[in-house]
Design a protein around this nucleic acid. Structure first.
Lengths: 145, 145
DNA sequence: ATATGTGCAAACTGTTTGCAGCCGC
DNA sequence: GCGGCTGCAAACAGTTTGCACATAT
């Protein structure tokens, strides 16, 4: 799995240098936001949170920055729900689980080995997205009844 | 896998009766559309094609009908790209593969056994979505060079 | 007669685009 | 001073909503 712990120690500027992205204050902040909360935020969530600390930041900048990050393969766009883009700093594919009750998204260490070749098609990447009820909500639901 | 061949022989009205959906001309036509082309169309595609034969049909009706079908579990909404809803008449989860070149979507008989319980979370359903280059495009690309 | 299906238009949401101003090297 | 970063506003696409009319039993 593509390193959840190591990522915390990474310096954004090093990543930018490696992937050939010019650093800027906003880019660093957006990168750090993604790094610190590995919860696959939407653009809206990033904007809502970051604009509290950086009141001048605009959504356009967030869109621009994320698009740049994606094109440089620093982050991945993930497909969880069809009405909004979510972003994931862990670039290796892994499974996501969404709780239908609390709405939270969990990363899963689901070992699925997807062959590189399927029916003759060349598989380059994949998303695995599960839905259900999370541990905590199960407990809460269970204790109600 | 949830029956691709059997589905062709199904009478829409039987399905409607079974799932407690009142039949109507439009509903039958939309159901048949999905049944005959198992290619996970978007609302737009359904509208474009059906409105040729049924000029009076509206997009609203297609949205309404699909929403009804989903709520009755006659069809599944699938998450392939984040900007549009796609529909799948095979309600059992299975994997989809999208060719990045020609854009077509293929059903895959990928045997993935997803446990019902993962890290304590209860998994109810899942989507597996792969991207890459399909057989035909590989051949075409290969012969070019 | 009543409940349900249908279709137009407007509203809404998330995203993209165009363009002008700004900042850093 | 130039190139690239930023941010506003408008445009855009897909979807949803409100409401009035049609239809079927």
């Amino acid at each position: 799995m593509g390193g959840r712990e190591e990522i915390l120690n990474i310096n954004p500027c090093d990543v930018f240098k490696k992937y050939n992205v010019r650093p800027s204050y906003h880019r660093i902040r957006i990168y750090e936001y993604l790094k610190n909360r590995l919860n696959h935020p939407t653009v809206d969530e990033i904007y809502r949170d970051l604009s509290e600390e950086i009141p001048t930041i605009s959504k356009t900048t967030i869109y621009n920055t994320l698009k740049l990050f994606v094109s440089k393969k620093i982050v991945r766009e993930i497909t969880i729900e069809n009405n909004e883009l979510r972003y994931d700093i862990i670039t290796e594919p892994h499974a996501h689980f969404k709780c239908e009750i609390c709405g939270r998204i969990f990363d899963l260490d689901l070992e699925i080995d997807v062959p590189k070749n399927l029916d003759g098609h060349e598989v380059q990447e994949y998303d695995i997205f599960l839905r259900g009820i999370c541990k905590e909500c199960l407990k809460r639901e269970g204790s109600k009844e």
